[in-house]
């Protein structure tokens, strides 16, 4: 009895901190292979590069915990960036552009939310369609070309501030802090867990679930807007092909961090570890002078291993 109990506790630690250990090992390997990997300059670059993924991963954590997987954020980033650039061009006001950009991210997310809540359509389908049409609109509006966006505030976002650390990193950190706060301390967070665990019981408890689902989508819209600003800032332009594949990185970050895909449980710390894992993998492999193709192989293998790891450690902790 006590032996199996300690085994269970051991496997719990393993599940909870295994990926963190893997992350540390991976950082060690990359450092050994490339002495410049673990320099402040590179860490700054790495974090800034991946800050849109980190921010979207915060929203994705809510989406997965509440069982509303969202494939659309990257396409919405492209579309809203393009809208921002156009409004900026037409009105000459960057501020209006930002407002329009955020209006798009929030409106599209809420539109998806309405289709899911009112239409009763599977979130996977709704956001898959959005994945296609939002990117398509972005390409259509621009004819496939990037639009340059020049603005001091925008440039400041990804300009080196302290050493190689830019404000974008601070924004990503803030996103995690606010995300963790909302998840753990507010009704929106509490109901995300409840929705993901048992929607019927949540409804029976008197929670207006439609309203809270829409709030979740709107919140995700805000985060996508922030990620869009950083993406545009990094490129100095709104590109219709921007952030391609970012949703995959964000979903993978949430899952390999150890948040179960079935929803109902999870936390921001796991997402942070998962997102850092992806960030280090992207940056470290890139720094080794690998081709994108080789990066993809290693990334794919690392992701599948991490998935297997979390699947089995969850099974271990669950078996009594």
């Amino acid at each position: 009895m006590s032996a199996s109990l300690s085994l269970r506790r051991y496997s719990q630690y393993f599940a909870e901190y295994g990926l963190l250990a893997a992350l540390v090992v991976m950082i060690g390997v990359f450092t050994a292979a490339n002495s410049r990997f673990l320099t402040l300059a590179n860490i700054g670059t790495l974090l800034e590069q991946e800050s849109p993924v980190l921010i979207v991963a915060v929203g994705m954590t809510f989406a997965i915990i509440s069982r509303n997987i969202d494939l659309a954020p990257a396409s919405i980033i492209a579309l809203s960036g393009v809208v921002l650039a156009f409004v900026n061009q037409w009105t000459g006001s960057f501020f209006l552009g930002v407002i329009a950009g955020f209006a798009v991210t929030i409106a599209v997310e809420v539109f998806n939310g309405l289709l899911i809540v009112r239409g009763g359509i599977n979130p996977l389908i709704v956001t898959l369609a959005c994945w296609i049409w939002a990117r398509g609109l972005a390409v259509s509006f621009t004819g496939g070309n990037s639009i340059v966006v020049q603005n001091n505030v925008l440039t400041f976002l990804t300009a080196p501030l302290l050493g190689n650390f830019s404000p974008a990193i601070l924004v990503a950190v803030l996103a995690f802090v606010i995300g963790a706060f909302i998840l753990n301390r507010t009704r929106l967070g509490r109901y995300s867990f409840a929705l993901g665990s048992d929607e019927r019981a949540t409804l029976q408890a008197g929670v207006p679930i439609g309203k809270y689902k829409l709030m979740l989508f709107a919140f995700f819209g805000v985060l996508v807007g922030v990620a869009m600003l950083i993406t545009v800032s990094r490129l100095g332009a709104a590109a219709p092909a921007a952030a391609y594949g970012l949703e995959l990185d964000a979903i993978v970050a949430v899952i390999i961090g150890g948040n179960p895909f079935q929803g109902g449980e999870g936390n921001m710390r796991r997402t942070l570890v998962g997102a850092l894992f992806i960030a280090v993998l992207n940056n470290g492999l890139g720094n080794l002078g690998m081709l994108d193709a080789q990066i993809a192989v290693y990334k794919g293998v690392a992701i599948i291993l991490a998935l297997l790891f979390s699947a089995f450690s969850q099974r271990l902790t669950r078996s009594k």
């Binding site: 997987i69 996977l124 995959l248 979903i251 993978v252 899952i255 895909f261 079935q262 081709l291 994108d292 193709a293 080789q294 990066i295 993809a296 192989v297 290693y298 990334k299 794919g300 293998v301 992701i303 599948i304 998935l307 297997l308 699947a311 089995f312 099974r315």
Partner: peptide, 30 residues
Amino acid sequence: LVEIAGISPVIATLGTLIGVRGLALVYMNN
């Protein structure tokens, strides 16, 4: 991955989506 390891099909095939394309590119030497 889906049936034996119990990983959700969206996630599992997302992993192979990334990895397999890379594998092919490496084999083709890009």
